[in-house]
């Protein structure tokens, strides 16, 4: 274990805890927009968790996964938020 390993473990623990908080907000609500906000936080924290894993394992594959999560998470939360705004994702 080096200094960097300890730091990466610590960061992973923090991100894991942050993901738990976000999950609690998704389950608990109370309003629909709270759940969407929770999901949005969840995917960002998941992306950061993957980058911490990438630092621990020293491989660059995690970067591509993180980029994909960032892309699809954004599309997902925008679609959900748009749905809450008007009841339609794509307006006719």
């Amino acid at each position: 274990m080096t200094l960097l390993d300890y730091a990466a473990w610590f960061a992973s623990g923090c991100f894991g805890m942050a993901m738990l908080f976000a999950t609690w907000r998704v389950i608990r609500g109370p309003a629909a927009q709270d759940r969407v906000l929770g999901l949005d936080t969840l995917y960002i924290n998941g992306m950061l968790m993957l980058l911490a894993l990438g630092i621990r394992s020293g491989s660059s594959f995690y970067f591509e996964i993180a980029l994909l999560i960032a892309l699809f998470g954004f599309v997902g939360s925008v679609a959900l938020a748009k749905f809450l705004l008007r009841g339609e994702v794509i307006e006719p």
Partner: peptide
């Protein structure tokens, strides 16, 4: 890494 972990966990604590 430590700064990032602390900042993120504080931000998510705000959700609660």
């Amino acid at each position: 890494l430590v700064a990032s972990g602390l900042l993120t966990v504080t931000g998510s604590l705000g959700l609660l």
